[in-house]
Design a protein around this nucleic acid. Sequence first.
DNA 1: TTCAACCACTT
DNA 2: ACCCTTGGTTGAA
Length: 744
Amino acid sequence: MTSKTPFLSEGEGWLLDAYPTPDGMLLWMATQGGERIPLRDPFHPCLYLNGTGSDLKRALALLERLRTPFSTRQTEKIDLFVGNSIPVLEVSVHSPTEFPRVASQLTRLGGSLSFYNCDLALPQLYFYERDLFPLAFCSFSAGSDGTVLKIRALDSLWDTHYPLPPLRHLGLKLEGISGNPAHGPRGRIEIEVEGETRVLEGENPGILLETLNHYLQKEDPDLILTDWGDSQIFPELTRLSERLRVPLSLNRDPRSALRGKKDRSYFSYGQTIFRSGSWILAGRWHLDRKNSFILAEAGLEGLFEQSRVTRIPIQSLSRSSTGTGITSMQMDRAYRDGILIPWRKSEPESFKTGLELLSTDKGGLVFLPPSGLHESVAELDFASMYPAIMTTYNISPETIGCTCCPENLAPETRHTICTRRKGLIPAVLEPLLAKRKRYKDALNASGDPSLRKQYEQRQKALKWLLVVSFGYLGYKNARFGRIEAHECVTAYSREKLLQAKEIAEASGYRLLHGIVDSIWIQKHGITEGGCLSLAKEISDATKLPINLEGIYRWIDFFPSRSRPGLAVPNRFFGVYQSGETKVRGLEVRRSDSPPFVQNTQKSIMNLLARARDIQEYKALLPEAKALLGDALRQVREGRVPIRELVIRRKIAREPDQHQRATLQAVVAQELSARGIRIHPGESIQYIITNAKDKDPASRARSYATFSPDHTYDREQYARLLIRAVEPFFSSCDTMRKELFPDGS
DNA sequence: TTCAACCACTT
DNA sequence: ACCCTTGGTTGAA
């Protein structure tokens, strides 16, 4: 333990974490000198209520009975939907750890009472109140016992260039695994310090724990980065520690207990998500790469960026959905503008909300492309279309349906939008859009690969906040959501896409394909200059920025399999003039395609990408045919390594809840019979052994339990392969008929 | 062989 | 508990 109470009463440092203790928020500061200092900031979180006099009296009586220090006062705060101040009773709870209990007791009172600011996470509430954020570089002064007298952030969460503390890392992994270790045999625990990896021997568990303790003492890491730490490593280590009575000092704060959370499955954005129970540390961070969306998507840089702008502590953010992040930004804005934050009602969540985020959402407009190969095509994309609409047209739950602006209607709707009062949602999105643009500009201007990576990860982290901001507008349980606001956004998006189409057509382009925020246009002798000036014209007319994504040498829109002749939106393969390719919807982009199929499809695409035009494309087809032939021989002769045949699928229900003997149901039941618990939202991996077997249980086998005496279904994998590559040959009738005579 | 029901994927 | 983006599979009619 190198941390100590500071002798200095003044200092500077990065704010690593904040969490509640009975007598204040505990802060961990990292100084430039490498010290890690705990501070305690007395903080009295407040909630607000209003209602009839007699109900308020009941609330006060209840507060007395709860036997924890509090104070109250009458004050006024803004009700977002009313638009002005209302009288409220402020309840200030002196002990932060008592706040959740007080709040949940009070909200049970019901009656005429309305509750505000009562269900926010304490670290966030604290950060909003003090205008601090995770990883802020702060100046502080503190008494000799570590009590904060003053703390202030010296940098801003809107800065794009900010110094981060040099962090000490420790890694924990499981030896040689792929896929979920809970679904099969798993290896020993590996520890990684300063680039060196050591296996922690499992034969003598006592030594394992002592070795780990030794590393924790010696290195005093700020960050324990794991693979499967939440679901496997930490539960096992704590079990061992209890059984052998060897204390394990994972926390930096010796007085704080581990803060665990339970497993949960939930439905979000159109799919079931599984979050393993989490192991949150006090004074240092535990981050599990296998239990974090944002870490997988945007890395540590992306996580840090999101944590700063959302003011959610690093460890909780890493395990949260992006919607939690954008909600926190909205609450932050509201809090600091003196707006009351409504208590979140948890009504049953609608299944529709996930689908509403899809690019083919019924709210968005789609023009189906003619299937097949096309030349002289350019793609123009509106930049962050939905958030841009919300800010440009001031769309927010409280600005819709105002009575002061009856003239200002959203297109094709009866919804008015206020022009006098700036909406909460636009106020949140505007700086976010601007910050992302600064990162993208910096990305384009920089030639330094490590800087570029950093900008890329940070802009991606912000992109996700922008993406979900639209979905949350229509989400029933969102604090600041309203379905009418959601409808206004899609109404504008349809109008803008139509406008873009008309402007392009007026300039002599043909609209080939259009979907929500992108158009593909065609014209003989298309030029970059022409497209750029068209983009400028559309941007000016729509008041929304639109960018030239690129001009294609050629693009192939794939036909629908269920309705031959018709194309489908978002299934295409194209090559830009730069030589870069763009693929959507094909097997290479789908996580449920076996790597063997993906690799073959990829190699055929790489080959065809050499074609400068349709003529050259057709000339390359015989070579593509040879590639396919090789791959087919390999699969039919049983020479494909098993790991390249693994199909990965997410299970949406409990193993015994499946109604059909689909392959994933069979495998989930196989694992379940071996005592392996599959949670809804988790992925399973399997190999097709005999797709047509009368006994469903013999059709597929879990990858984890696949042994050398099992064989894969050669013909079924050949069929999967053929299906994935057949569309590439559809431009050449004779070859298609020769290769796929029965149209399989 | 047909087709409704089921199930997972997509940014 | 929704009432539907597409594609694929299952199993009864």
